[in-house]
Amino acid sequence: MNKIVFGKYLPLNSPIHHLDPRAKILAMLVMLVAVFMPAGWYGYIVIAIILSIVTMIAKIKFSYIYRSFKPMMMMVIFLLIINILSFKEGVLLLDLGFLTVYSNALFQTFYIAVRLILMIMITTLLTFTTKPLDLTLGIEYVLGPFTRFGLPTHEIAMIISIALRFIPTIIEETMRIMNSQKSRGVDFEEGKLKEKVMAIVSLIVPLFSVAFQRADELANAMEARGYVPGEERTRYKQLKYTKNDFILLAGSFLVLAMVIVLAFVI
């Protein structure tokens, strides 16, 4: 459980860490759009190289990025099976009689896997280098224009920030309850179906009970400190764009433009 890195913040000191969260969120959105363009291999290679450079500037070891791919492996394998069963074009690679594998199935899976990897790389780069609170603040600003259409941006940002804030707490509680139940002889890894179900129940019930308790306490603490949803609030921390933020935004739009050219013009 401690091995989960996806969504974590890595407290390092790098130019990327100091960028404005709004700029980072916008750049992430632009890059995600770029990944969705059918730009072909050249496009993806360029995006991968640029992301690797950003990773290096952010002083993040590639092994952490790699670790966040791991949960995705199951998905890729599943995809591969579906593709093998459905794609029957290209070169015949393997013929087992009941099962035939064509090159296009592998090719398609690889293509989607590369896109997934790039998307995960983009989002983990954001969470690795941005403090949860800054992220919330950034989200609130980015959503700002939608206030006009009645979107409760402040509330949404508050909900996201509380959710982010509680992820580590909930993970901690989960670990603690798991440990308590392991001490009582629960085996979370092995066991028959009935034992497995019991193991999950022994984890879920206390977890819900704790989560509701925590939520209740938090609500009381917020009310006691005069929090009123929808009320005008001032901020201690003011966001300011710097030169680097513009470089990041310009860079990401440049990538998007390049990918569009690759996809639709050439």
């Binding site: 309850i177 440990n179 308590s180 001490s183 022994s202 206390p206 009970s209």
Partner: peptide, 9 residues
């Protein structure tokens, strides 16, 4: 455990 009451289910 510390605060062992959380293990009840």
């Amino acid at each position: 455990f510390q605060f062992s009451e959380y293990q009840l289910f």
